[in-house]
């Protein structure tokens, strides 16, 4: 029975302190009765293997003991979905900016790995990610502790049980375009267009600064001007008919992609030909011109990432519109869309 005693001792360790002895005596009695019954059936003492089989069937000691404890949790099922949402927001607000900063450091400062990690990109990555995990650990810990406290407070106050259905947020229509956003786009687009048409080479700032742009600039000038005019027109349509349609979502995808591609090209085009400042030596202005072109060129990977994110966002909207546009679903006005709003 040495094995049985070891088993009972292991179970006892995990039991609630006040009931340890009582539970163990009862459990011990049951297991001994099982062993005795088996021995009577076989007409001999059970060997070690047979006792082991009985104990294995009973289950791991910690599992057996856990059944005698009341159900305990740090964050209960009521709070858990809110807790998970907050963690996701924390991850988004913390991790995404961090990754962006890291990309900027690596692209803008190619010597970073040499200076900080003996030239190894992996070691540089590790040196940057070390603090990230430490801070993430504290952030997650703080959120968890806060929710654990809230769980205890909620259990006592029962505030989650008191609610008013009338205060629920209105049904969100993902395909509806906010009028405020359209007005903002219209205003911002107009201001940008007015500013942009003045950017003809050479650009003269005051009486002392003259910026000469390379001939390739004309492509960017006309390209961006056409795109911003399309954006202004689309914002006007969106203001009058505030629902995304497949055609308008497709148009937004096309113009955003074209704009992003144009910007990526701009980064690599060495568009700055010369800068002339009356109070600065020509050699210095050449140095400044080259430095700006170099930094723009180094921004290229970031521009590509931003372009991909914008295109993915627009593509997602187009797919969403495709799957919810009532005209594409056999003309049924699903979701209560006013058909007059469709264009």
């Amino acid at each position: 029975m040495e094995l049985l005693d070891r088993y009972l001792q292991a179970v006892k360790f995990w039991l609630p302190p006040m009931q340890k002895q009582d539970i163990i005596e009862e459990l011990s009695e049951d297991i001994r009765s099982q062993i005795e019954e088996k021995e009577t059936e076989l007409g001999r003492k059970l060997n070690r293997g047979e006792v082991e089989t009985i104990l294995k069937r009973l289950g791991r000691p910690v599992l057996v003991a856990s059944r005698y404890s009341p159900q305990q949790y740090l964050i209960g099922p009521l709070q858990f979905p809110i807790y998970r949402l907050v963690l996701q927001i924390v991850a988004l607000c913390y991790l995404v900016p961090w990754v962006l900063v890291w990309i900027v450091i690596i692209t803008m400062d190619p010597d970073y790995p040499t200076r900080h990690a003996g030239g190894s990109l992996l070691r540089a990555l590790a040196s940057l990610w070390g603090p990230l995990w430490l801070t993430a650990f504290f952030a997650v810990g703080a959120v968890t502790i806060t929710f654990a406290v809230l769980e205890r407070v909620q259990a006592k106050s029962g505030f989650l049980e008191e609610w008013d259905p009338g205060k629920l947020p209105a049904v969100r229509d993902p395909n509806r375009i906010s009028r405020a956003a359209s007005i903002f786009e219209l205003a911002a687009g107009t201001v940008f267009a007015v500013w942009w048409v003045q950017l003809r080479s050479p650009i003269v700032l005051g009486q002392s600064v003259r910026i000469t742009l390379a001939p390739v600039w004309q492509y960017f000038f006309w390209g961006f001007l056409i795109l911003i005019l399309i954006h202004i027109a689309a914002s006007g349509v969106n203001l009058l008919r505030p629902y995304w349609t497949r055609a308008r979502a497709g148009m937004r995808l096309a113009t955003d992609t074209a704009g992003a591609a144009l910007f990526c090209w701009l980064c690599r085009a060495e568009v700055l030909a010369a800068i002339s400042v009356s109070t600065v030596a020509p050699a210095k202005t050449v140095e400044i011109t080259n430095a700006i072109n170099l930094w723009m060129s180094r921004s290229f990977p970031i521009a590509v990432i931003v372009a991909v994110v914008i295109a993915a966002f627009d593509l997602h909207r187009m797919i969403r519109v495709k799957t919810t546009d009532p005209r594409l679903a056999g003309g049924v006005a699903a979701g209560g869309w006013p058909t007059s709003a469709l264009s």
Binding site: Q19, I23, E26, E29, D30, I31, L58, R67, Y68
Partner: peptide, 27 residues
């Protein structure tokens, strides 16, 4: 009844129950 005989009786009547469920339930 005591635990072991109760478990056997339940088993014989088609309501088998293991120790890990019965004793916490009794408590």
């Amino acid at each position: 009844q005591y635990g072991y005989t109760l478990r056997k009786a339940l088993g014989e009547r088609g309501m088998a129950i293991d120790e890990g469920t019965l004793y916490p339930l009794l408590r």
